[in-house]
Design a binder for these strands. Structure first.
Length: 567
RNA sequence: CGGGGCGUGGCUCAGCCUGGUAGAGCGCCUGGUUCGGGACCAGGAGGCCGGAGGUUCGAAUCCUCUCGCCCCGACCA
């Protein structure tokens, strides 16, 4: 392509509305323009890059025998009502009515429609397994779109769905996806980690997320390279740091003491001179408006997803309001709460409290606390993993880091949720009706681009992996009006095209500085610069990422460029 | 939905407090000089100041309402 004929509206300054790097660069480099909050126009460069990504996705999905479909984004309410998600999705789903007043929505995912197809057509175990996928636009009415293409209301997703006769079949489909995802992200040039994820109350049994470490991310992940353990914080387990002080010895009785005005863990810690690890933190949560008392060690944080998983099936989880707490605890306010004597709600405790003794907690009387409280003796609780993993915890003796990440893919063993609720059955070998088991698997296409930019950029712009850059090579004559440079540049351009290299010729009547700046900005991995040294038969081949520049004879330039692209 | 910020040529912003009829830099167009890291000179085009209402002789500026966008939080199959 000839640059002079293309629409690549690069910006010299950063648009003020862009905060994260990938967003700034996508705008500055002329890849995208915003249409509304969380809705973007993908211009020429973005579209080229996205097509390269989707081609890779396609090849690898086809490689595991998946079949590409294309389903409607516009869905009738009925299928969503059947699965129950018409209600569950709430405000997150775009809804509309047609001229006759019928309810419709814009699809967020396509479990329902895929299952709808399957139940109409799949009759026999002989037709299984099946893997169906599509690359399609998804809509989610995000309460708060942000960070450019990272959190948007309309985006492209590769979503696939597997149908199997039994769990072993699902395991195989899942493993195939795991392998295909690794290939896809490897080919896209990303650094990523596959982490164990919460499979939630959806009836799923196993789930992995593919994450890219990035400050722009919103998910926190526990990383333990030593033990090769990687898990989303929603799910991660670890060994906490030991208590900072030993528990007092002896079979002591709880003893009330006055703590005027001391409410927080830190205040009690200071008041008693004992570390936070000696305290029991009491949290009153409401699960669908039913109270639950959750206990964790004073220095620990409860993780709401773990709490939700423990309570199971609740639609709404929230901390109790101050008035509710007073109602439930005979007038006592948060800050003096404890588990002793609590009978009007379920009491659950984090495992880190099991086996501890003579600890401190609230006395359920304002401004009083208790010491010598021993879990299991002085109060009963059910023990679960409720605490959030923290930096400094260990896993099998190895230290854990907590990193911020962006989710680029998610694979999920769905189980029977959709096949059951939507009555998908086939006949097995014995002529008996059985319900197929399903899996669902997603990849956020734009997030691959976005993460690549987050991972690979410098002060001058993007430095995209060759496989997903809009062009592989840019030919930059310093002065295109110079006949020699002109001829050489066009020669490179034609030869590169002939060899199947995605090449861009910067034939613009611009000063060299402008061309260099633009080439760096839009992130083309290799540049051949033709300038004064052409008189000696030499041109420069520049590696965008390393900034390495080598002078090579004209005849060797394309070869050199190819060697960089292959690396 | 709570909190904060911002809407003025394509972009970045000034002007607003203290009302008097709109500016700069970049970009764009024309001509010329330039030509290895976002050139220079000269000339030029381009803005119902987000929208509506109000106060006033007069509103970008003051008041009310409204819409949009960004950030923090809540939320995130």
């Amino acid at each position: 392509m000839q640059w002079s004929k293309l629409f690549i509206p690069t910006l010299r300054e950063n648009p003020v509305d862009a905060e994260v790097v990938s967003h700034q660069l996508l705008l500055r480099a002329g890849y995208i323009r915003q249409l509304a909050a969380g809705v973007y126009n993908y211009l020429y460069l973005a579209q080229r890059s996205i097509l390269k990504i989707t081609n890779i996705v396609r090849e690898e999905m086809d490689g595991i025998g998946a079949q590409e479909f294309f389903l409607p984004a516009l869905n009738p309410a009925e299928v969503w009502q059947e699965s129950g998600r018409w209600d569950v999705m709430g405000q997150n789903m775009f809804r509309l009515k047609d001229r006759f007043g019928r309810d419709l929505c814009l699809g967020m995912t396509h479990e329902e429609v895929m299952t709808y197809i399957a139940r109409g057509e799949l009759r026999s175990y002989k037709q299984l397994p099946q893997i169906w996928y599509q690359i399609q636009t998804k809509f989610r009415d995000e309460p708060r779109p942000k960070s450019g293409l990272l959190r948007v209301r309309q985006f492209t997703m590769k979503d696939s769905y597997s149908f199997d006769i039994d769990a072993a079949g699902l395991d195989a489909a899942y493993d195939k996806h795991h392998a295909a995802y690794c290939k896809i992200f490897d080919r896209c040039g990303l650094k990523y980690i596959a982490v164990e994820a919460d499979s939630g109350a959806m009836g799923g049994s196993q789930s992995h997320e593919f994450m890219v470490e990035s400050n722009a991310g919103e998910d926190f992940v526990a990383v333990c390279d030593g033990a090769k353990y990687y898990a989303n914080l929603e799910k991660a387990a670890s060994v906490p740091k030991p208590p900072a002080a030993p528990d007092p010895e002896g079979d002591l009785e709880p003893e009330k003491f006055h703590t005027p005005g001391k409410k927080t863990i830190a205040e009690i810690s200071e008041f008693t001179g004992l570390p936070a690890t000696s305290q029991i933190k009491s949290l009153v949560m409401m699960a669908d408006n039913k109270p639950v008392l959750a206990l964790v060690r004073g220095d620990h944080t409860m993780h709401e997803t773990k709490f939700a998983a423990t309570v199971g099936g609740a639609n709404e989880i929230r901390p109790a309001h101050p008035e509710e707490i007073r109602d439930l605890f005979g007038g006592t306010s948060a800050g003096s709460l404890g588990p002793i004597g609590v009978t009007n709600m379920r009491v659950i405790a984090d495992k880190a409290l099991e086996g501890r003794k003579n600890m401190i907690c609230g006395a359920n009387i304002d401004d009083y606390h208790l010491k010598n409280v021993t879990p299991g003796e002085d109060f009963k609780a059910e023990y679960f993993d409720l605490r959030q993993v923290e930096e400094g915890d260990t896993y099998e003796g190895f230290p854990i880091r907590v990193v911020k990440t962006v989710e680029i893919g998610h694979i999920f063993k769905l189980g029977y949720k959709y096949s059951k609720s939507m009555n998908l059955t086939v006949l097995d070998q014995n002529g008996k009706e059985v319900t197929p088991i399903m899996g669902s698997y997603g990849i956020g296409v734009e997030r691959i681009l976005t993460c690549a930019i987050e991972l690979f950029h410098d002060k001058d712009g993007m430095s995209l992996p060759a496989a997903i850059a809009p062009f592989e090579l840019v030919v930059t004559p310093a002065n295109f009006a110079d006949p020699g440079q002109h001829e050489t540049a066009v020669g490179f351009y034609e030869e590169a095209k002939r060899q199947g290299i995605d090449v861009l010729l910067d034939d613009r009547d611009e000063r060299p500085g402008v061309k260099f700046k633009d080439a760096d900005l839009i992130g083309i991995p290799v540049r051949i610069t033709i300038g004064k040294k052409l008189a000696q038969g030499v041109v420069e081949v520049v590696n965008r990422r390393t900034r390495e520049s080598v002078d090579v004879p004209v005849a060797e330039a394309i070869e050199k460029a190819k060697s960089i692209l292959r690396a």
